[in-house]
Structure formats: C-alpha cells, structure tokens
Nucleic acid binder design. Structure first.
Lengths: 276, 276
DNA sequence: TTGCTCCTCACGTCACGTGAGGTGGC
DNA sequence: TTGCTCCTCACGTCACGTGAGGTGGC
C-alpha cells in the first residue's frame, strides 16, 4: 500500500510562492537553523514545510525587510515560541530605535552633503596654544567608532556624579582624548575626562568603578572651534589637518576635544612645541 | 643635500584622522580606484595624500553614510571633476529617491509587522473558479523582483496607449502572470496584460515594440481578493497557499493577479480542474 | 521517457574588518 | 636600537545569489 503524501505539507517551491521568500533564502534559513523544514526526506534531501510555519516565515520576511540580522530574528522567533511577548517586542523595539537613529543620521548626512557640494567655505580660525598639564577625573575604555557618542554621554554622567558625591566642582569643560588609532581603525581606547582643580583623592573615587584620577600632560596644539552638530565635526578635523599638514608641524599624539557647550566643541590637534 | 618631505602631504594615518575614514577604507578606495593617493613610494609602498584630496574624501564619507555604492560614488566624483554639476547632482538625486522609497517601504513593513504580531486574523474568502481563455494585449519580459512594480506600471501604460491608438477598449481589469520561478528565484518572465474582446490584429500593434497579442489559456484557480497595499499581498498568497496545500489541490502554473481597483487585487492560484 | 523540481557543493558579491608576518624611518 | 607606522597577502563577515553538476518523481 502506497502511503499518500501528507496533504498539509508544502514543497520548498510552493512554500516560496506562499511566503514570497526565495528558495535560496529558505535553504539558507534552514542552514543557519532559523526556519527548519518540518521534514527532510532522508533519501532525496527534499524539504517539506508545514502550513503552521507560514506565520514564522512572514515575520522573518518583515524583519528582513527592516534589515534585522538573522540572529536577532532568531531571538524574536524564540521568544515568540516561548510565549514571551515582552521579550519579543523588546528585541523588535530596540531594532526599530536603531533604525530611527540611523534615519536621523541619514538626514544629517544629506544636509551636510549639500553643504559640501555647495562649496560653502569652511571659515575656520586656527590658533596655536599650549594646553597646560591638567588634573582630571576620567573614564578610560576601548570603544568602537559607532559607540563613541553614547559612551561619552554615559561617561560624563558617571564622572559628574562621582564628583558631586565627593563635593568636587569641575574646573573646566568636559573633554575627551582620541588617539590616532581610533580614527585609523575606527576603534580604540578613549578617555572621557572632566578637569578638576588638583588631583582627586584616589580613595574617594575608588568606589565608583572605572573612574581614574590622572593628570593629562601639557601639549602644544592647533585649535579650532567646531560649531554645530557632532556629525559634521570631521570638517573641523579636515581644516585642522590641512593647516597642520601644510605647515608640517604635526606630531603624533591624541587629539583632544573640549565640549564647550551644546553646539561648540574645541578640537585640539597636537603640534611641535614652540611653533608660532 | 637631503630633500625635505613635501609639506602638504599626509601619511595615510594623518589623512585618516583628517577625514575620519579608516585606514582600511582608504586602502580599499585606493585598490578600487575611487580615491588614489597622489604618490606611492615605489620602495616602501607608503601612500601619500594631498590636502587637495580632502574634499573628495569628505564627499565619499557622506555618500557612504548614505549607503551609496562605491561605483556610483565614483560616478559622482568623476562628474564633479569634469565640472558636470548636473550629472553629479542627478546621480545623487536618484540615490536619494531610492532611499526615500526604501523608507516608505520600511514604514509599510513596520505597520504590517504590527498586524502580524497582533495576530489579526486574515479573514479571507477563497473561492474556486474557472478562468476562461482570455484574449489579451500584453508585455512580456524578464523582470527582477524589486523592479516588478515600476515595470508593471510602465507596461500597463504602454498597453493602454497602444489600445487607445488602435481604438480597442479593454475588456476587463489589468492583470499579470507570475510564474513560480519568479517567487523562487526572485526574478523571472512576467506577463502584464490587458484583456481585449477578441485577439487584437497583430499588424496594428506591431508598431508598438514589445507588445504581443495572445490568448491566455483557461485555468482552474483558487481565488482570493487582496485588499490594501501591494506590500502586504504576500498575506493573501499565504492564505491561498495554505488553502491549496491543506486540500492538496495545487498544480504547477503561473499565479495570476487581476488589479480590480486601487486597493483590490485578485490573486488566482492554479488548482486541479473540477475541484469544488 | 522526458522535463521538472529539487538537491548539494563551490564560489561570488559588497565594502570593508581581522589578523599574520614583515619592513622602513625616526 | 627600539617602537611605531606602514605595508601586503589571505581570509572572514553577512545574507544570500549564481552557476555547475547531478538525482528523484510524475
């Protein structure tokens, strides 16, 4: 007696038509364990999909349209399978927020591009200055390029909280050290600091983990003030770099930024001592 | 006499800091010819960049932030170098329009995802019907998945124009044939058609290139009407696929869609003759 | 029996990132 | 002289797409 094919199953081609996922994509999702066919013929390797797998396939398609990585989609499906709706929605929301941020970044890039194409001259006053040795309370960590902004915000909040706790007032604007490695590899050890009048007692800040009280060495720099949003600060770097390169006064060393206020940042590029 | 290093040149590391492009990216842009250093030391392979290359680097950075492919960025820079501002802006605008469309698509996906997660039931009436043989004027072409919508719009416009030119009225709603290959490989030969009462005289349409007058064969189908935007039509496919799979009545053959009005499309999935 | 559907490698794509291993200049 | 910067392979990443070459079921 020949057994009839179980009727509620799809071949991969039918499942592709029903879900609008390509056959290649379905095979890939099988390979990585994201969407496994309910049966695989041991002799032929033919995959069989069930009607009950359609909702998962539809969610995968939607999330891929939103450019969610496959492993995160896996987390969404796992949470849904567990009935953990909160976790499912959390993973999705995090991703949507990232997309939102990228959209804002995109709009900023468009505006900035317009400025560049119009050839709006970057009128920038570059001055040479000697930054004196500075006592600071700081956070130091290896940070990836894209994580820099949130890491900075978090770090400054922690430093200010620690200073408030020990009753020490900041002696200057927040600042950060960017080693050349950070620009060259788009990752590196950053230092977020807040100046203090004198070195903060190590024992006082010891409790707040990760904070260090150090003295930044004195350094000669070419300085320019960047006005505007963070995402265009590379224009100030370009102007400073051109200034320094055309005079051949650049030296190796971390660039320092000082955050004067919401829309003004000082960029300090190290140069040889004693130059004009 | 030792020749001094030409002062207005950057090392790759300095250029990276000045432009905020990673060293790896700069080397890659050199490899592909997008941004070639002004000099490469023949002995050491060291790259040298000029101050004058900063604007190009900034444009590359902005366009990459907008996810423009490197070859298109090359076209932008070439046009700019030629002084062809119109061409430069055209390439950029085309890309921005594509981003705009993707954004709309993203927003639609988010809304659709919400619907899927809420488990809003897809109440769909599926009926079985025999589509009679149909004379049509059609356009046939191999089309990629993402090009389908604009290709359809263009094709219908051309067919209608041709019909108007020869004084033939449409005998039914616009429609299209989607072979299974199109869903499985996300590319395939589509047919966009407009029904006519009788076969249109071949000589009359001969002038309008690409148009063919053919008769679509009769076929038994399971039909459901999709209501709403195009990007959710896979939900109707899923319901039809489940209906057909659970009854094991599916047969191979192209799916037909009939575009009844702005927000209603009929999806017709081929089934065995004489069912239900 | 002939296509058709399906299968598994193996490799390509895109824009870099990640090391490994090595050299030149201050 | 020691690090530091830079170099070139070679390979990895991510989510598939593109063939090549081959088999089973109607």
């Amino acid at each position: 007696v020949k057994t009839a094919v179980v009727p509620e199953l799809f071949t991969i081609g039918e499942f592709s038509t029903a879900t609008h996922l390509s056959v290649k994509a379905l095979r890939h999702y099988h390979d990585v364990g994201l969407l496994e066919p309910v049966a695989v013929d041991p002799a032929t390797g033919y995959r069989s999909y069930a009607v009950a797998q359609i909702p998962a396939a539809q969610i995968i398609k939607r999330l891929r349209d939103l450019e969610m990585p496959l492993d995160q989609i896996g987390a969404v499906l796992d949470a849904a399978a567990r009935g953990d709706t909160e976790e499912r929605d959390r993973v999705i929301l995090v991703h949507l927020q990232q997309m939102e941020e990228r959209l804002e970044q995109t709009q900023a890039s468009v505006a900035s591009l317009r400025g560049l194409l119009e050839g709006r001259p970057t009128e920038l006053v570059v001055e040479h200055r000697r930054l004196p040795a500075t006592d600071v309370l700081a956070v130091r960590a290896v940070v990836a390029w894209d994580d820099a902004e949130p890491w900075l915000a978090d770090s400054f909040a922690r430093v200010h909280a620690a200073l408030a706790a020990v009753g020490v007032a900041p002696a200057g604007p927040d600042g950060a050290l960017y080693p050349s490695e950070f620009f060259e590899a788009h990752a590196g050890e950053l230092v977020a600091f807040v100046p203090t009048a004198g070195v903060v007692d190590a024992e006082l800040v010891d409790a707040a983990d990760g904070l260090v009280a150090v003295t930044l060495p004195a350094v000669d720099v070419a300085v320019a003030v960047h006005e505007g949003t963070f995402d265009e600060i590379d224009r100030t770097y370009a102007a400073l770099g051109a200034h320094v390169a055309s005079r051949a006064i650049g030296i190796r060393g971390a660039v320092r930024e000082h955050y004067l206020d919401e829309s003004h940042s000082e960029v300090a590029w190290p140069i040889s001592a004693g130059v004009g």
